[in-house]
């Protein structure tokens, strides 16, 4: 499979378990088989990764119920939650859509390597060590860069009146 390693890595980052990642990958492949067609994704890689990610997140919920750890998702989400509005502030679906649009607009203005770093950390749930190897940066540099991006996101959302 062409994107097997990438999908497996994503699933393992989220679930924190090699076995769970393999199962997520199998589930994703089955789901892709069922949905293509009628779906015609422009990017097969992104489409497969989304399926893997959703599958892994579902499996993570099951893990939580079983009290199993090792996932990067909680840490990544905690980091991101610091710069996003609290639950109570998101009053309705409309505000949620506005927030998504604002985050996308913010990320669109970032330099590509910073946006890649952001997506890789919070969407792929990659660890700092993995990002360090992928981007050729030191782990400390990765953390500092992500921290600065989050602060800028926070300021941006404040400026937009969403925070």
């Amino acid at each position: 499979m062409q994107y097997g390693a990438l999908c497996r890595s994503l699933a393992r980052n989220i679930t924190g378990s090699r076995e769970d990642a393999e199962e997520c990958l199998n589930d994703a492949l089955l789901k892709a088989w069922e949905t293509i067609p009628p779906a015609h994704p422009e990017s097969l890689r992104a489409y497969l990764l989304r399926i893997v990610r959703n599958s892994a997140l579902n499996r993570l919920e099951q893990q939580k119920a079983k009290k199993r750890g090792g996932s990067e998702i909680p840490a990544a989400y905690d980091e991101l939650a610091e710069c996003l509005p609290a639950k109570d502030n998101v009053a309705n679906q409309v505000e949620q859509k506005e927030l998504q649009a604002a985050v996308r607009a913010f990320l669109a203005e970032l330099p590509q390597h910073q946006r890649d770093l952001f997506v890789r950390r919070y969407w792929y749930a990659s660890s700092a060590a993995e990002l360090s190897e992928l981007f050729g940066l030191s782990e400390n540099n990765v953390r500092v860069t992500l921290s600065r991006i989050r602060k800028r996101l926070q300021k941006y959302l404040q400026k937009e009146g969403l925070l």
């Binding site: 990017s43 990764l49 890649d116 992928l134 050729g136």
Partner: peptide
């Protein structure tokens, strides 16, 4: 999707 694609193979500095 393009951002996810791009992040899948980032340019190494």
């Amino acid at each position: 999707d393009e951002w996810i694609d791009s992040a899948a193979a980032p340019q190494k500095r």
